[in-house]
Design a protein around this nucleic acid. Sequence first.
DNA 1: TTGTATGCGTTATCAT
DNA 2: ATGATAACGCATACAA
Lengths: 351, 351
Amino acid sequence: MENDKNNDGDKINIRKKRLTVHDVAQHAGVSTGTVSRVINDVPGVGADVARRVQTAIEELGWQPNIAAQNIRSSASRMIGFIFSDIRNPLYATMTKGAEEVFGPRGYLLVSSSSDGRMEREVDLIDLYRRRRADGLILSITDESNQEVRTAISRSGISFVMLERSLDGEATSISADHYGGTLQAVEHLMEMGHRRIAMITGGRGTLVMRERLRALEDGMASGKLDVDPDLLRLDSFDAEYGYHQVQMLMGKKNPPTAMLCLGVRLLPGVVSGLQSMGKTFPGDISLICSNDTETARILTPPITAIRYDAHMLGKMAADSLLDQISRTDGKLEVKKFEIPTELVLRDSVRRI
Amino acid sequence: MENDKNNDGDKINIRKKRLTVHDVAQHAGVSTGTVSRVINDVPGVGADVARRVQTAIEELGWQPNIAAQNIRSSASRMIGFIFSDIRNPLYATMTKGAEEVFGPRGYLLVSSSSDGRMEREVDLIDLYRRRRADGLILSITDESNQEVRTAISRSGISFVMLERSLDGEATSISADHYGGTLQAVEHLMEMGHRRIAMITGGRGTLVMRERLRALEDGMASGKLDVDPDLLRLDSFDAEYGYHQVQMLMGKKNPPTAMLCLGVRLLPGVVSGLQSMGKTFPGDISLICSNDTETARILTPPITAIRYDAHMLGKMAADSLLDQISRTDGKLEVKKFEIPTELVLRDSVRRI
DNA sequence: TTGTATGCGTTATCAT
DNA sequence: ATGATAACGCATACAA
C-alpha cells in the first residue's frame, strides 16, 4: 500500500531500489554536480563538503552506474578476448596474465571461446561491437578468413593479435614457435631420428606456419625432406591425437619420433599409444608443447617446448592498452615475441 | 567520395565515428522513434518504412549502443560468474555449459576468478554491482565469510550458488558429493582398506563438508573412525598434493588408500608418489575426482568419481534466468543436485 | 502509422 | 566553491 503512491514528482521514494546521484546529493544537501566531482577527484571541492558527500555515499551504499558513465564517455572500459577453446588451460593462463594488467586499470576482461567456428567469431566480434568494447585480444581460428577480418575492421575496435598475425597489419604478441620447434627438431635429429611426425592443429595461423617451417628447415639442415604423410595438422582435440597416433603407428614404416604440439593433444596421443600397447620412448620418442602438469607426471615425463603463457597475456594487455590510449590516431604496428625453451626429460631416446 | 561531405545536421563533426539512431533515422528519412520500433520489433510499423530503415541500418552499419539501452531498461543483460581458480578445467566446462544458455538469450557471461582470496571476491561482487549485472553465479571460497555475504546482499543482485550453499537461503546447484564420496569409500572398504586418506581443499564449502561427512559415514558403517591425521584438507593446488602425499607416505603407518579430490591435485599427488618411488596401486590405492583426461591416461588409469560439470553450468544458468525473470519479488529457493558415478579403473587393489 | 518529447544516470559547461 | 542545466544514445508515452 505504501509504494503504489509513487507520484514521484519530487519523490516519495518508498521503493528502495535504484539509487542515483540525486539521492546522494539530496542526502548530503549538495547538488549532483558536486557529488560527481567528489567521486571523480575533480579539484576544487571544499574539504568539509567532500566529507559530507563521502559519508552520504557510504550511508546509502551508492555506486555510480557504469552504463551511464559509458554513455557519456563513450568508453566501456571493457575488453574482449576471443579464442578458440576455453578448456585449453593455456588460455586460462593468458587470461590471468591479462587480468593482472586490466583489473588495476579499471578494465573488465571478458573472455569468450568460439570452439573454432568462424561464424561464432564473427558473432562475438559483432557482440563486442554492440557492447562498445574498448579493445579486443584476438586468438582467432584462421587469420585469413575474410568474414572475420571484415568483422574486425567494421567493428572499428582497437585490437591486438595473440599467437596470431595479420600480414603485419596489426600488432601481434606470440611465442617464438619457429625457434622452439626448430630446437626440438634439431634435438631429435641429434638423437638419430630421421622419421619425425608432427601432430597439431591451427591451420591458417601463425603458430602452425612457424612450426611447419621450423620442421622443414630443421630436416633440411640434415639434407632431409619432410614426409607429408607424417604430418597430421587438423585439430588440437584429444580425440584427434588419439586416432592419428594410431594411424601413424600402424603404418608399415612408422615414425621414430613425434612432435605433439597442443596442450590437449598430449593426453589423446598417450592414450592412443597405450591402446596399441606402444610405449615411449621405446616405440616412439615424444616431444610436446607446452610444458604442462600432464607432461611432467607421465611415466616417463615428456620433453617439452616451454614458454610463458602468463607473460604472453600480460604483454597482450599492455600493448592493447597502449594502443587504446594513443590519442593521435597513429596506429603503430608492433611485433612481440617471447622466447621458448626446450625442457629435456626422458621421452626421447637415441637410436 | 560521397561520405566525406559529412556536414551532418549542424555539427562540424569532422570525426566520423559514433553513429546513432539519429544518423539512421536521417538516412532513412524517418524519425528516431521509428528506427527504435523497427529494431525492437514493435508492431505497427509500415512494411515499406521498416524495410527502408533496415537498409539504412545495414548501409551505415549501425548497431544500438547497449550502454544506452541499459540505462533505460536498467538491465545490463550481463551475468557474472565468480569462482576461485580459472585454471581448473572444471570451471571452463561449467562456463561452456552456462554460455549455451545465456548466449542465445542475449546475456553476456563474464567469468572471473578470485584465486581463493575473499577480499577479491568482495571486490568482484562490488564490481558487478557497479556494472549493474543482472545476475551472479557464485562458487565462492568460503560460504560463511561475512564480508562476502554482506557484499552479496548489499549488491541486491539475483544469484545462485554453484557447488556451494548458503544455509538454504539461496538456490544452489551442485553435484551429489556426499553420494559420490560415500560410494568411493564403500568401494575401498570392500576392497579391504581400513586406513583411507583424503586430500582436498575447499574448507568452508558445501563440497568439502559433504565429502568429509561421507567419509565419516562410510567408515562408521564398518565400525571405524576417521584418523584425523590422514586428512589433508587445505588446498586444491598441485603443490599441496605433492607435499602432503609425501608426508602421508612417509609416516610409519601410512594409508593404504587415498581419495584425491580436486582436478589439479591429482598431478601433484602422482608426482609426489613418483618422487618417493612409490607406485599405485602397489603402495597405495587411489581414487580421484573428477574424471579427467589426466585420470584416464595415467598408468594405470585412475578410478574416478565422475559428474557432469557441463550440465551443472547449464542448470545454474537456467535457474538464475528463471529467478531473474520472476516479476513477483518472490524469491523461490531451490536445491538441485546431479548424480555422480564411480568409474572403476585400475588404481585400486584388494588388500 | 509515425513523429515529438521526455527520461534514464552521469558528467561537463556554464553561471553564480 | 557550488549549483543549475545541457548533453550522451536510446525507448516509450503521448500527440498527431
